[in-house]
Amino acid sequence: MISSPLFYLFTLALLVAVIALFEQKSRLKLFKYVPSFVFIYLLSMLLASIGVFEQNEAIDAIYKNTKQNLLPAMLFLMLLQIDIRDFFKLGKSLLIAYSLSLFSFAFAFIFISLLFDFNKEMASAFGALSGSWMGGVANMVAVGSALNVSQEAFGYALIVDSVNYTIWIIFLLFLTPFAHRFNNFTASHEQMAKLDSIIGCACTIGAKRYWLLILLAIVVALGVNLVASSGFVLLNYTTTTVVLATVLGILGSFTKLKTINGSSEVSKTMLYMLIALIGSKALLENFGGVGFYVFAGFCILVIHALIMVIGAKILKLDLFSIAIASLANIGGVASASMLAATYNKALVGVGVLMAIMGYIVGTFGGLAIGNILIWMTK
């Protein structure tokens, strides 16, 4: 049994490193449908469930402090290389499709919450999930932390996200050959938008760059926690740090800080560590009702799909536009790019832009939906 807080963090870091390395070296197709962060969460939860981690004050304290500082640091770096201006170059039809996707998810979460009569725990779990389905897993972690979602409820949200995402991406890929028929149904014309520039940087960078990014992230984390502890509070302490870190990341993207390459790699590492931390506080025995959560999540997708199809018919949107807008929200950069490539390789950039915009929208949208769902339980 691990009782040392430093050994506790080392074990989780080692778990993250092993899974990430295995994903990179093995190149299994399994990771295309079940993201590596799911395995990180499940294995860290398994270690906690079999009693590997001792429940003591020292471990609880380092868990709280690490999560409290790692979360704003991750959000800041994640947003640092996003250029909002590129998103608005996509064109009218794609912007309408993206807006429709956000609206449909917001409506679906609220409607299903009313239909299933969510209790406070379910409301908070689906509030965190809305952050993911409007942005990405990083947004789900941020929203879940801000809403004080329990480890078990967050685990439910993560499982729902993984299961329904897998079903959804397979369904959207299946629809690709039928794009012409759908476009005839909506009387639309496919959007063949192309990007004039590459988003981010694919270059290999040295260790000095990584250390500079980590230093910046530490400064931001210390800064936002200092502000939150000084008495300036938005809803609660964590919400304050999340919002401030998000705003600083967006502002930083308009400065020369954007030219420091590697922020996505460092922020991804921080995200994986955060997921391992959350998983280490969950227990397998508390996951008996996950099937109900998965079904509710599937119902949200059905309502989302119906609104997207109806909207496409009224607004004359093509299948590519609504499919990529949907998957950019649910899946993120990798899956949105893959789906875009099945239509035309020149459209990959569209998927990238929509997905990275979700990193901004997901946190604020998830916080809004989450608080509405929790308010509805009162």
Rank of each mutant, 00 (worst) to 15 (best):
F37S: 13
F37H: 10
V38C: 12
I40S: 08
Y41R: 05
Y41Q: 05
Y41H: 05
L42Y: 00
S44M: 03
M45T: 15
L46S: 07
L46Q: 00
A48R: 05
A48G: 00
A48V: 00
S49V: 09
S49C: 11
G51S: 11
G51F: 02
V52Y: 05
V52D: 00
F53S: 15
F53A: 14
E54W: 01
E57I: 06
A58Y: 04
I59W: 05
D60N: 11
A61E: 15
K64M: 06
N65I: 10
K67V: 02
K67C: 01
Q68Y: 01
Q68N: 13
N69C: 01
N69W: 00
L71S: 08
L71Q: 07
P72E: 07
A73T: 10
F76Q: 08
F76Y: 06
L77D: 03
L77Y: 06
M78A: 15
M78D: 12
L80H: 07
L80S: 10
L80A: 10
I82S: 08
I82Y: 02
D83M: 04
D83L: 04
R85V: 08
R85F: 04
F87W: 02
F88I: 07
K89P: 09
L90R: 03
L90Y: 02
K92I: 03
S93Y: 05
S93K: 15
L95R: 10
Y98F: 13
Y98A: 12
S99D: 09
S99P: 12
S99I: 12
S101D: 14
S101E: 11
L102I: 06
S104G: 10
S104Q: 08
F105M: 04
F105E: 03
F105K: 01
F105D: 01
F107K: 08
I110T: 03
I110R: 01
F111G: 11
I112V: 15
I112M: 11
S113E: 09
S113R: 05
L114D: 05
L114P: 07
L114H: 13
L115E: 13
F116G: 06
F116Y: 07
F118W: 05
N119A: 09
N119Q: 15
K120P: 13
M122C: 10
M122A: 15
M122W: 10
A125P: 11
F126P: 13
G127V: 10
G127D: 10
L129F: 06
S132T: 14
W133Y: 09
M134A: 07
G135L: 02
G136M: 04
G136Y: 00
A138I: 11
A138E: 06
A138C: 12
N139K: 04
M140P: 13
V141H: 03
V143C: 14
S145T: 13
A146R: 05
A146Y: 02
V149S: 14
V149W: 09
S150E: 00
S150W: 07
Q151W: 06
A153T: 12
F154N: 00
Y156F: 12
A157T: 02
L158V: 09
L158E: 08
V160T: 10
V160C: 10
S162I: 04
T166D: 04
I167C: 08
W168N: 09
W168D: 02
F174V: 08
L175N: 08
T176H: 06
P177I: 01
F178L: 09
A179I: 02
A179S: 14
A179T: 09
H180S: 15
H180E: 15
R181E: 03
R181Q: 09
